[in-house]
Design a protein around this nucleic acid. Structure first.
Length: 219
DNA sequence: TTCCTGCGCA
DNA sequence: TGCGCCGGAA
């Protein structure tokens, strides 16, 4: 079985074992984008607390959040960690929405994927994973999201070399899969769920993992 | 103590 | 290439 077939097979195995994920958790495209920034290297449970704080103050709109004093914003997102950095990153993104979309995130859909991706990457604080998360989950554009779980899972299975970078890994999935927003959405969700549950950082619980049949090497 | 859907900067 | 950023839960 070649690597593209393995990638397709892994999806089937996870989907069969775990079922639909209904991602991204978030009520609006703007909330999803905010969540994508807040969850950088951060447990989602802590992000939920920060989003709940914003929601309680009715601040989950680009205009309202940009009008807020940065120190107050930092206080509200404090549970998500890195709150000073993330305040700056959120504000960079809010200024971007103001300039590029007149505060209406969905109007960004007028751009073609590659151009919008470059624009997002030019915002300080939005790297490749955050950009792809916003594009796929908030704007429903066909880009594959790679994260630490994706790296770890593919390395444990001996399917990629250790030093593979984000761009290469993303291309690997996008070349192996049909261009399909729903499929990319669900595949990344399944990887995260599998990563949290079985493909843990220190020791993988490989024997019980849905991807066990695809295991070559398990350290 | 470890880990968490990263990122920018020195 | 390494390092700081940071709170909260297990």
């Amino acid at each position: 079985m070649n690597r593209a077939a393995i990638i397709n097979g892994m999806y089937e195995a996870m989907h069969a074992a775990l079922g639909p994920s209904r991602w991204w958790p978030g009520d609006t495209p703007f909330e999803i984008a905010v969540g994508a920034i807040l969850t950088q290297n951060t447990n989602w449970g802590n992000v939920e607390k920060a989003i709940a704080n914003l929601k309680a103050r009715e601040l989950l709109s680009a205009r309202a959040m940009l009008a807020l004093d940065p120190a107050e914003l930092a206080g509200l997102i404090r549970p998500a960690g890195y709150y000073n950095i993330k305040t700056a990153r959120l504000r960079n993104f809010l200024f971007f929405l103001k300039d590029e979309a007149a505060f209406e995130i969905e109007s960004l859909k007028v751009h073609v994927l590659d151009e919008l991706r470059d624009k997002l990457l030019a915002v300080s604080g939005i790297g490749p994973e955050t950009a792809d998360s916003i594009l796929l989950y908030a704007l429903e554009m066909p880009t594959f999201v790679v994260d630490a779980y994706t790296h770890r899972l593919m390395r444990r299975h001996g399917l990629v070399h250790d030093e593979i970078d984000y761009h290469e890994l993303r291309a690997l999935f996008m070349d192996a899969l049909p261009e399909d927003v729903a499929l990319y959405n669900e595949y990344h969700a399944l990887i995260v769920r599998t990563g949290k549950e079985w493909c843990r950082k220190k020791t993988g619980l490989c024997a019980a993992c849905p991807l066990q049949p695809f295991l070559d090497i398990c350290p």
